[in-house]
Nucleic acid binder design. Structure first.
Length: 271
DNA sequence: ACCATTTGACCTGA
DNA sequence: TCAGGTCAAATGGT
């Protein structure tokens, strides 16, 4: 139960504003005839402002909490104090929860963890936006539905502050079929036509060939996702909007399918 | 050698 | 203390 503290109220209102701005931006984007880029930029700007306020308020609240828990903490370590906690508050409500029959939502995600969950037959997968290195804080949690093993429950946390332009670059042709996109228009981009199903598989090879280009410009490493504290690389997942192939559904998730998809290099997609 | 993927360890909130 | 979320070393593939 959320306490109606001033901070909570600000967060709630800003989140509503953020969702509205996202919706507006998406409406403008999809408008025909196309609206001026200036208008779209304005909507994007509003969204960015909301994002920043939410991030700032959240960070402030988290910092306050940390200090309360650790009164000995001083400003000796300003970088840590200024850093919002990377760890999501357990049980924090998802920004949006989607029940879908595929994990593909048109965004480029990087898997950063997997966990077996108590009372669940299926592991939970953790993804963050592939552009997190550029400041995008969107993450998602994917798990097979207990009731419907063929369905996924995808919880989204945070908004795409990367502008999602790159994230969505492969999703444009997909029709909107995601269930429960709520008031948040990101759901629109989760569009996947399940009827395409496995027939997409053969085309993947061609697409992969088209996409796979090893062009690495100097300084391109900034685009490669990496943990702030590590030089190791992380897995990437590029979801092309295909449903898991029947037969993969038995057993552990559709790892095989994801592996096929994973063979696409995220870096390649950025070119 | 480089990059992607896996998975056990670690951290933190409840 | 436990369970969920994240990190990062180890491993495998190209």
């Amino acid at each position: 139960m959320a306490l109606a503290t001033p901070t909570a109220v600000v967060l709630e209102l800003m989140t509503m504003g953020q969702q509205s701005a996202a919706h507006l931006r998406d409406l403008l984007r999809a408008a025909s005839p196309p609206v001026q880029a200036e208008h779209q930029a304005l909507a994007a700007e509003i969204l960015r402002c909301c994002d920043r306020v939410i991030a700032a308020v959240s960070a402030g609240a988290a910092d306050k909490k940390r200090k309360a828990a650790d009164p000995g903490a001083t400003s000796c370590h300003p970088p840590m104090a200024a850093m919002p906690s990377k760890r999501r508050v357990r049980g924090a409500e998802a920004h949006r929860e989607v029940h879908a029959d595929t994990t593909a939502d048109g965004f480029v995600w990087r898997k950063y963890g997997q966990k077996d969950i108590n009372g669940s037959n299926h592991p939970r997968l953790y993804y963050r936006c592939a552009l997190s290195g550029e400041g995008c804080r969107a993450t998602r949690r994917v798990q097979r539905s207990q009731e419907e093993p063929a369905a996924f429950v995808i919880a989204y946390y945070g908004e795409h502050t990367c502008g999602a332009a790159l994230c969505q670059q492969r999703a444009e042709p997909l029709p909107p079929t995601v269930v429960d996109s709520g008031s948040n228009a990101w759901g629109v981009f989760g569009a996947v036509d399940r009827n395409r199903g496995s027939p997409l598989l053969p085309s993947l090879g061609a697409e992969q060939g088209a996409v796979r280009r090893h062009v690495e410009a100097p300084g391109d490493t900034s685009r490669r996702w990496s943990s702030p504290s590590s030089s190791s690389s992380y897995s990437s997942e590029v979801e092309l909007g295909a449903s898991p192939v029947e037969g993969f559904l038995d057993g552990n998730f559709d790892w095989e399918w994801e592996t096929v998809v994973n063979s696409l290099s995220f870096r390649d997609l950025l070119h």
